[in-house]
Amino acid sequence: MKEVHELNLPEDVRYTKDHEWAKLTGDTIKIGISDYAQDQMGDIVFVEMPDVGDTFEEGDEFGTLESVKAVSELYIPVGGEVVAINEELEDTPELLNQDPYGGWIVEIKPKDTQEIEQLFDRDAYLGVLKDE
């Protein structure tokens, strides 16, 4: 497992306590998992994703990640409607291991784009990681 200083934590995304990231582009937000999350999970073998059109309130479970011997739930950091899912993950879930920030999971149209501001920036997230 990686030490905190070895983690790839880009500046241009926001983070959550559940180790997800969110990035606003135009009026949609892409959501994925952080380098820390993929490292902790190990080889990801399956991603269960919602359907396009599903709507979620902030904090709702929107899918699961599976490794060989563990399952972890994904929680939506910002409420909204799913406008796209990353279909590439259906056959190549390892994308999340190889490139966690390129490998987004869902794209949502948030009810309120401002909500993303509530999430951690890089420094705040680093603080969370140091406490773990």
Partner: peptide, 12 residues
Amino acid sequence: LATREQHIRREK
């Protein structure tokens, strides 16, 4: 595909 099973997913 053991993640379907009780020893991993427990009540789910």
